[in-house]
Design a protein around this nucleic acid. Structure first.
Lengths: 336, 336
DNA sequence: CTGTTAGCGCCTTCAA
DNA sequence: TTGAAGGCGCTAACAG
């Protein structure tokens, strides 16, 4: 499958390669007549430009990379979709990479994207351990994270204010009359979980309601599995069922729901359940009350930030660490 | 952000660019000592090779493109994950593109991938109308479809034998005692639906059981929405509920389930439901009986085919149009 | 073992 | 309005 190049087109059209280039790029300095003739030849010969060569000389590829942990999760895939869309609107193509929740894969993809000369990267990092690679490649191109990074890390981010989110969840359950609160599905490697859990505890303490984090030493691949397992673990632990459960995320809550169903436990009759992230679209079996930011807003903001950085270079920390205000989305998984 | 090139490395290490290239590529013709020294300089200076330049000269990028209609659907995203994985195993990186079920977007992505010089494309086409673009770009590189293409189209594919699938579904419902069969969620643009529906009708006719396709003039973006809507339409149509429903796909079945739940209709007590594709993982509320091929097998076969084509060029039609045998996966959405 | 050189396909001055 | 020529960063002969 031999590639057709502008040289072939030039020969066929009886012009120089410069003219072909001009015709192709809409540059001026060429007569309408020749442009038209050349373009005709191009599609008669089924010419496709070589993006590598073009990118090489222009130092621009008009593409950005998107790296997410798990395409199978509706939460991440929705973000990916929104991000691709936002990129398109700004004239960029998006290349999507699935890190499989694996640090090595994530890093390989960052490398691949940099090598492919994408102009910027939007990433939902696996966790705190992702930060080294992000820092490393951020010297090559702008990188924006969709999750808060730990303090020493300089990567710009756009995320929810998780402290506020944890507090909102606790306060809502308490306002619904819950007297025994549990945070389920905690995974300490996730900064968001730590922030949510911590502020959840604080809020409960402020209102003098007993609350704790259910600690459980398992590591499952997905949040769904973790929720399912932690809840089953809880059932056999001897601890009696709390009347309010804060799931570490909606995905986790999903797993909890499955375990409940298998054990004849009803929500919200037997306990109130609240999650985070607002992924519960298309899940007909439960309307999950949740705390979340608008995904559209998050992505819109993040892509704006990224494109600004592409054009203007690095921004001040103040402008590049954005926390959005989460809000409560009431559905039907809590009493009342 | 100035790129560091092998020239910079060469100067810094006091060698020629050729030596740098050799060190980087593990080519021999260079002493271990210099290689090590050069590599040290590379990572001290934080060098990242320019993939565009490399791809340009080697005419190989070691990447393939994957195009799917909707990343948010667990069915497609699972395929995408399996395909990326299979590609990695064979030494290829995978670039994922989401066509949003839009013909224009799909075509733009095909173009983008070709321009980026991917070596092959795996695509789950939107529909029959995708075939023109596939044919066009298949002159540039190997393309393998994950869905049957219509007869005049020459694109290789690896898919389920949908005729067989439709028959299996009908026969199973009948064997469970169903006496009034309906095919729901039909969308005529989808070849797979046509094949499933047609063979479903044939099988029912063979066994003298009344069966029909529920035709409904709506066009929703997702199969889920279509299922939901068509079922609600059915409820208000005056037709009495069949005792066996074949959903056009599992995603459609999902929508049906939601509509049932809202209307107090129980499955399988009120009717038996069967779908296609086997996407019902992580859906705790219903164990959907379905007819499907193994996704692993499909992707494994497709990626094999694609890599073979990349290496050897076009294959014979016989070797490149593969239909896999679907099988019945019994769960709990049918009576008995 | 090492360096020099000629492209890969394209864009972009600079002259004509 | 056009063409010739140089170079983007890299690899792959070819000399030495």
């Amino acid at each position: 499958m031999k590639q057709i190049t502008i040289k072939d087109i030039a020969k066929e059209a009886g012009v120089s390669i410069a003219s072909v280039s001009r015709a192709l790029n809409g540059t001026d300095g060429i007569s309408e007549a020749s442009r038209k003739r050349i373009l005709d030849v191009c599609d008669r010969m089924n010419y496709t430009p070589n993006g590598l060569a073009r990118g090489l000389v222009k130092r621009k590829t008009q593409t950005i990379g998107i790296v997410i942990p798990d395409i199978m999760s509706p939460f991440y895939s929705e973000l990916a979709v929104l991000a691709s869309d936002a990129a398109h609107k700004r004239g960029y193509q998006a290349l999507l990479c699935n890190s499989f929740r694996e640090l090595g894969t994530e890093e390989r993809y960052l490398k691949l994207l940099v090598e492919h000369q994408v102009e910027g990267i939007l990433i939902f990092p696996i966790g705190v351990r992702s930060e080294a690679a992000m820092e490393k490649y951020s010297r090559n191109l702008p990188i924006v994270s969709l999750n808060e990074t730990s303090t020493p890390c300089h990567i710009p981010y756009v995320c929810a204010d998780e402290r506020q989110a944890g507090r909102i969840a606790a306060e809502y359950l308490i306002s619904r009359g819950c007297k025994d609160l549990l945070f389920l599905g905690f995974k300490k490697e996730r900064l968001a979980h730590r922030l949510r859990a911590e502020s959840f505890l604080n809020a409960a303490a402020d209102m003098r309601i007993p609350a704790q984090i259910y600690e459980c030493q398992t590591d499952f691949r997905t949040s769904f599995e973790r929720g399912y397992d932690h809840f089953r673990h809880l059932l056999t632990s001897g601890r009696n069922l709390p009347d309010g459960i804060v799931a570490a995320s909606d995905a986790t809550a999903n797993g909890i729901v499955k375990a409940c169903k298998e054990n004849g436990i009803r929500i919200p009759e037997d306990f109130s359940l609240i999650g985070f992230d607002n992924i519960s679209t298309e899940l007909p079996y439960l309307d999950l009350t949740t705390v979340a930011i608008s995904h559209e807003k998050q992505i819109e903001t993040a892509v704006n930030l990224l494109t600004e950085m592409i054009i203007q270079g690095p921004l001040s920390l103040a402008k590049s660490r954005i926390k959005l205000e989460p809000r409560l989305i009431v559905r039907r998984s809590c009493k009342n």
